[in-house]
Amino acid sequence: MQKRVIFKARGLPYLLVLPQIAITVIFFFWPSWQALESSFFIEDAFGFSREWVGWQNYRELFNDPGYLRSFRSTLIFGLSVAALAMSLALGLAVAANRVLRATQGYRTLLIWPYAVAPALAGVIWYFLMNPSLGIVAYWLKGIGVEWNHYVNGDQALLLVIVAAAWKQISYNFLFFLAGLQSIPKSLIEAAAIDRAGPVRRFWSITFPLLSPTTFFLLVVNLVYAFFDTFSLIHATTEGGPSDSTSILVFRVYNTGFIGQDYGGSAAQSVILMALVIVMTVVQFRYVERKVNY
């Protein structure tokens, strides 16, 4: 936790932490406190007066079918993005780990999408799938699928899932590759001597040994899908059609800035903050303990 040998100074350490703490208090604790506070008030649209309403904002949220639907689409969205991005990345990492000399070359070709902003990933896929001139939509029509995410809510959700997962593959790939490279070769060789084939070796040795990485990535991917994809949705579907892609973090923004409902947006913020905190705690408890067999 700390050094055995340290410096003695009275004011200096405070001076050193001051910038970090000041920014954290001003831009983190103060707003979070305000969100908590205003979630118990109803404010008029101009901010002139407000009224204490207790839990009413929360009650209204959970009685609002739209909000509950957002929970559902967030869950579908998050789990699909995590499953898609992680399984593809695992496959690629296993393959890249097998080709000895070419690993580096493939790695270069596979990691760059990490640098693409989620908003750009969204816009690019939005273009590819555009019903009137997108090339993917054209191909889909060729095999008999009518693609129109402007009208069809499920297709719109699928579009943002694919775009979000596409961007996240590189990240997962790097972590899986690092995990695979840390597995001792001797274990694999011993299994090979016992005549276990590649598939058997993967499922009974590699995959269990990767479980800490897998678990870590699961949490990171869910956090990514729940929160970082705001820009992806805002730049493309804007939550529509008819709310089908309005995930929770998008709704916070929409309720607050477009709907001008301060209390409702603040209550949603508080719920999301609680969700993140729970995920962070889970992350730390289990990652420290190293899920393993």
Partner: peptide, 15 residues
């Protein structure tokens, strides 16, 4: 640590 700005966007904007 893991609290992105999107989550508390409105009050941060206020500040």
């Amino acid at each position: 640590l893991m609290l992105p700005v999107e989550v508390r966007i409105l009050p941060t904007f206020d500040v």
